[in-house]
């Protein structure tokens, strides 16, 4: 399973990193984000790209688990 860590990255890099990973067309992917804005942006992008996702809170960060 692919996993990317976007913590600490400023807008729009979390989405760009997700986009880059998605371009390889993975079945599933985990994305770590550390703020609400990035969580919402990445989630919206995943939805538009046809992935379903689930957000888990991991301490102060969020783990977005997406799959086709």
């Amino acid at each position: 399973m692919d996993r990317i860590d976007t913590r600490g990255m400023s807008c729009p890099q979390p989405v760009l990193m997700t986009k880059k990973a998605i371009d390889l067309n993975p079945e599933s992917i985990d994305i770590m984000v550390d703020n609400n804005t990035a969580k919402n942006n990445v989630s919206r992008f995943l939805k538009n790209a046809g992935y379903s996702y689930e957000v888990k809170e991991v301490e102060e960060d969020y783990l977005i688990c997406a799959s086709k």
């Binding site: 807008c11 729009p12 989405v15 760009l16 986009k19 919206r44 992008f45 538009n48």
Partner: peptide, 14 residues
């Protein structure tokens, strides 16, 4: 800046 950027980059209209 995000408006035009996201539109070009991600086709996101938000």
């Amino acid at each position: 800046v995000g408006g035009i950027r996201d539109l070009i980059l991600f086709k996101d209209t938000y």
